[in-house]
């Protein structure tokens, strides 16, 4: 007489103990991976941002409207800042989401804090994106064109 012994647990895990395939899918794993991937890219983007804006030339004293206009007249810096905005905001929002989940014990408190967090994140990401793409580096103020080497005469 032979008896077949099933492989332990394989395919027989009760649904409530499964780590994937639940209602949230593998969102948490994707979020975990995103933190690491975006983190590496952000180190490069932010260190570059700080170096170019604060360490070169006159440093912080050089920063004014013309400085920003000069950078965003170049698609390279537009893309750099756009990538930095999106990655940093998503990275930071996910980090704060984790902290809320850790410390807010009441379900309703967690839900409220995360609603505020997501609303703030959406507003900031959209605002920043809009500013980068609709920005005019050569505005005319009171009928006078602002001088800038990158502006058409």
């Amino acid at each position: 007489m032979t008896a077949t012994i099933e492989s332990p647990r394989s395919g027989r895990i009760a649904p409530q103990y499964r780590r994937s395939g639940g209602s949230r899918g593998n969102f948490e794993m994707i979020a975990w991976l995103f933190m690491r991937l975006s983190g590496v890219v952000l180190v490069v983007l932010i260190f570059g941002h700080l170096f170019v804006n604060l360490m070169v030339g006159e440093g912080i004293h050089a920063i004014d409207f013309g400085f920003v206009a000069g950078k965003w007249a170049d698609p390279f810096w537009q893309f750099w800042d756009l990538a930095m905005l999106w990655l940093a905001m998503l990275h930071g929002t996910n980090g704060v989401r984790t902290i809320i989940n850790d410390y807010a014990e009441k379900t309703s408190t967690r839900r409220w804090l995360k609603t505020v967090l997501y609303a703030a994140a959406v507003v900031i990401i959209l605002l920043g994106t809009l500013v980068i793409f609709t920005f005019n580096p050569c505005p005319v103020v009171n009928g006078v064109a602002l001088p800038g080497g990158f502006c058409p005469a």
Partner: peptide
């Protein structure tokens, strides 16, 4: 930074 969209001043 978004203030660049409002006015240079």
């Amino acid at each position: 930074t978004s203030l660049v969209r409002v006015s240079p001043e």
